[in-house]
Design a binder for these strands. Sequence first.
DNA 1: GCCCAGGTATAAA
DNA 2: TTTATACATGGG
Length: 276
Amino acid sequence: MKVTQLNGTVRVDGVTDLDLAQTLDCGQSFRWVEGRDGFTGIAFGKRVTMRLDGESLYIDNATAEDFESIWKDYLDLDLDYGKIRSDISKLHPVLDEAAGYASGIRILRQEPWEALCTFIISQNNNIKRIKGIVERLCESFGDQIDGGYLFPSAQRLASLEREDLAPLRAGFRDKYILDAAKKVVSGEVELEKCRALPYDEARRELMKIKGVGVKVADCVLLFGLHRVEAFPVDVWMKRALETLFPDMEPSDFGEYAGIAQQYIFHYSRMHPELFG
DNA sequence: GCCCAGGTATAAA
DNA sequence: TTTATACATGGG
């Protein structure tokens, strides 16, 4: 990758295996908005706009230092997704087929607390409404920066009561958000520890939080802590597995199971007729 | 009105 | 241990 600093924009050449829509608007992060100049979002204290032209990635409102310290990691550009996709394709003929349906997806390295909060909000919910709740959460309790609001800290949310969250219209999830904030602030749940913990222990650590079951825990591990072996299974994925991979368990998908899951998810969404 | 949305807590079998 | 139901809200 070659990094060039323009005015307020960074250009990165040689970016492969990346599709911004597949990566930023696929239900792993809920704060990116597509506009005329690309996808605009806020992470790690910065608000940027990204667009891709061939293998050139442009990031507005960023410096070369920002790219090196934030966005390269955020987009997981050091991981060879071409190789991983090739390896996954060899596991099963259906995976070979599925891998073509989201070949530009990457697993973001999001901030863990944000991932935890947003996936608590995601339960029994739809993407459009999740985005609305997250937006109101940031506007209500996040620090203001140029052009938007940061995701509110756990400390800030831990100081609130359910009635304070009423304007979010998050429904029954408000109490789960507060429980998560309190347990993260008190140290009863240590998110960073979950990066290195054995997978089952990391899952149990997260499930100490009310409203965090196996699905939310796996999403937080995959999308917030980059545990790419995590394989979130929802109702839809369960049907996809039964139909397409009757002889396989989630644990059979290997060390990059989470990436395989993304391929399967997109593939199955494109072929709902496969499930009757 | 009814159904569903990338689920989970709770109570009962 | 497994299975049913409520849960808040909003769009189709």
